[in-house]
């Protein structure tokens, strides 16, 4: 069971201990994600440190709330933090399919996706774009974008057992 911080327990030593636990469990995964977006190890480490130091007790409680996926919550916060950086980098792939993905390399799941799926998945996952924004950008209905995103996840799910990660 995930430890919830009560208002009495929300002292800095307790927060530090909770953060240490989160960092040990998810620090590597978050750094991998941030590094994929930023492509610079030192800056990615800086963002990771900031992600943890900027966490407020209320956010921590949200992350640790029962029924919440801790990693997905932390990743959403990381995505928010990266928003400024994300807006300044290019898209994952050329919209017309003329060039291969620019920013995400070495991810076998993404390599398996079609060009459109790559655009949508990278746009959402790495560049924090909304479905509405992507629909407007790609001149397609929102339902089609959602469908492409779903297909991307189906590819990941169908191939996840080949990764050797358990």
């Amino acid at each position: 069971m995930k430890p919830q911080l009560t208002s009495a327990e929300a002292s800095l030593p307790a927060i530090k201990q909770t953060l240490r636990g989160l960092y040990n469990s998810y620090g590597g995964m978050l750094l991998g994600y941030i590094q994929e977006v930023i492509k610079d190890r030192a800056t990615a480490e800086q963002y990771l440190a900031e992600l943890f130091t900027d966490l407020r007790p209320a956010e921590l409680n949200e992350i640790l709330a029962p029924g919440t996926n801790v990693f997905c919550r932390l990743q959403l916060l990381a995505r928010k933090k990266l928003a400024a950086y994300i807006n300044s980098v290019g898209d994952c792939a050329d919209k017309h399919g003329a060039s291969p993905p620019k920013n995400i390399g070495g991810n076998k799941f993404i390599d398996m996706m079609s060009h459109e799926q790559q655009l949508v998945f990278c746009g959402v996952h790495y560049h924090g774009k909304s479905i509405t924004a992507l629909a407007a950008e790609l001149n397609q209905p929102e339902a089609a974008i959602r469908q492409l995103l779903k297909e991307s996840f189906t590819i990941i799910r169908n191939n996840r057992d080949d990764t050797g990660v358990h």
């Binding site: 590597g28 995964m29 978050l30 590094q35 990693f71 991810n107 076998k108 990941i156 990764t163």
Partner: peptide, 17 residues
């Protein structure tokens, strides 16, 4: 699934972080 992708791409942070 999201965790799987992240685990696949995970990078161990250095101690000083």
């Amino acid at each position: 699934d999201m965790e799987r992708i992240a685990q696949y791409m995970a990078v161990t942070p250095p101690i000083h972080t």
